[in-house]
């Protein structure tokens, strides 16, 4: 059954990583619903947050393939329920509509939105939330004619208390170190 999943990939901040990652989706004909890339808490490491609608089995295999890429440190996937996530939306409405009645003000209050800028001609409103929420405000404001509208990709964090990557990196360094030491002991075995 197709469902929305959030894929998080931690990668080196190298040229072409976006292309490498999207190729994994393109090859399997899976559409990306939303995509956000920015520097993570670890300097030099980028975090990709990718929203897809697909069967879990397919998502699991996509994550395996992403993680296989040489410049990807780690990739995870989660269902929406397992993560806290937000999107940001900006709306531009004619200032005239704002001054004519208090309906826009009410909408802004009701939706917990805020006004970023007011000029003689237009007003820019900002709202963060889930897609349904930013969409609801859009529909409300559009009664007065939205001049411009933009919605960001999703950002998301897990409900677990720590960032998984740092734990993972520690585990992996230990793995690699033990791999090296096991090779050494093996050599010792031979030389005895």
């Amino acid at each position: 059954m197709s469902k929305e999943f959030i894929i998080s990939a931690y990668t080196e901040n190298h040229i072409g990583l976006l292309n490498r990652i999207t190729i994994v989706f393109t090859r399997r004909k899976v559409n990306i619903e939303s995509l956000t890339v920015s520097e993570s808490a670890i300097s030099g490491v980028s975090k990709f947050t990718i929203v897809v609608k697909a069967e879990e089995e397919k998502v699991r295999k996509i994550v395996q393939q992403i993680e296989k890429l040489v410049e990807v440190l780690k990739a995870f996937y989660h269902s929406n329920e397992e993560m806290i996530y937000q999107e940001i939306a900006l709306y531009k409405v004619p200032t005239e509509a704002l001054t004519k009645s208090n309906q826009i003000e009410t909408l802004v209050r009701e939706h917990n939105a805020r006004i970023l800028e007011i000029t003689k001609d237009y007003t820019v409103i900002e709202k963060t939330g889930h897609k349904e929420e930013t969409q609801a405000l859009f529909e409300g404001l559009n009664q007065f004619g939205v001049l411009q509208f933009i919605r960001s990709g999703r950002v998301a964090i897990t409900r677990s208390p720590i960032e998984k990557l740092s734990v993972f990196l520690e585990m992996r360094d230990a793995q690699l170190a033990s791999l090296e030491s096991s090779e050494e002991t093996e050599e010792l075995e031979y030389s005895v």
């Binding site: 040489v70 793995q175 791999l179 096991s182």
Partner: peptide
Amino acid sequence: RSYVPEYK
């Protein structure tokens, strides 16, 4: 750094 050739 980002590459694990094999696991133990």
